[in-house]
Simulated scan of single mutants.
Amino acid sequence: MTDTLSYLDAAAVARLRPRDAVNALVASLRDGLDPSTSTPRTFVPLTHGDYILMPAEHGADTGVKIVTVAPGNREHGLPRIQGLYLLFDAVTLAPRAVLDGIELTALRTPAVSLAGVRQHLLADTSPLHVVAFGAGIQAIRHVTTTADVVDGIREIASVTFVVRDPERADLPAELAGVACDVVQVGSAEADRAVAQAGIVHCATSAREPVFDSALLRDDAIVIAVGSHDPDAREVDEKLVGRARVIVEDRDPALREAGDVVMAIEAGTFDPDDLVTLADVAAEDVHPAGRPVFFKSVGMAWEDLVVAAAVMDADR
């Protein structure tokens, strides 16, 4: 163990540019990282909540994200989810650093999403209309990460957040240099935004589809990150049936991705048609020729790769 263990707080973690986090993930896959060998997350019950443990190893690094989930924290004025990332040297197993786990998650989740769709997103140079379902940090960060990835290639033409209660939503007035519209889910304004969108982000707690996929353009990209339960979904089975479906890895998707699982059960999607992140990492920029759907459930290797990238950038 070093005499002084580095601690990177939320501000330090956030200094890594989102597109650099995307590039780090793609590079790790091109270098041979195999997501299928990633250890599944472990839930450990506690008196007042749970631990979620996510260990991983790749190359010169190993680490574990420790997240706590405390449902009663609202009464104490604290976040329900908190956590740390512990980064170690893979050879000596000596601790290298401790990172803010919540900011790391906020950074890596949209980076994974964009790593999955970047080759299709960048195949078009026309102005991009962005829609995000949800009012939380992931909805916001998926928008800003998208803007960073397309920076210099595509203009952000509009940003629309679709939420349950626009009057209560605490959202920025502007992102990516454009004013943000905030509309109510199920409204005519929401339907128009979805019909116009080049990319739709779903980052909600919904357990049923949040929009009618018949509204989507044939070249639309949809990303869903709001759940990892086999009986919860944010998109309908018709979208999954008509789209190119990209997932982090087959086994976690078939185990946890309700959007995919329920489409298979409905008979609209063949699991043999799943495309993985490892598959798309090797692809050049190209149009998909149909809608693209990326579903993420979160895997431990992703946190490790981004944590190592944060450390490299901090040197």
Rank of each mutant, 00 (worst) to 15 (best):
L29V: 10
L5K: 06
P127R: 13
A263I: 09
Y85H: 12
G289H: 01
H201W: 00
S296N: 10
L277D: 11
H228L: 01
V240I: 09
A106N: 12
E256K: 07
L254W: 03
L171R: 06
T276R: 04
R80V: 15
V280C: 13
A24E: 05
R96M: 08
V297D: 02
L274I: 00
H120Q: 08
G63I: 12
D229G: 08
A197M: 03
D31I: 00
V131S: 04
D272A: 15
D219S: 14
H120W: 14
R233D: 14
A94S: 15
T144N: 11
D3Y: 13
N23Q: 15
A21H: 01
P166V: 06
T105Q: 06
P95F: 10
V112F: 12
P95W: 04
E167P: 02
S38E: 14
G226H: 03
I264G: 01
A10Q: 10
E103K: 09
G83T: 00
V235K: 03
R15P: 12
V163P: 03
L254Q: 03
G289L: 01
A173Y: 01
V162K: 07
G267H: 09
L104T: 09
L121G: 11
A106H: 09
P172K: 01
L93W: 14
R168K: 15
I81L: 12
A173Q: 02
A139G: 15
D151L: 15
L5N: 13
S187L: 07
F133I: 04
D151Y: 14
T109R: 00
R74K: 15
R17Q: 15
S28N: 06
R255L: 09
R233Q: 14
I153H: 15
V280G: 13
L175R: 06
L122H: 01
T62E: 14
L128E: 10
G258L: 08
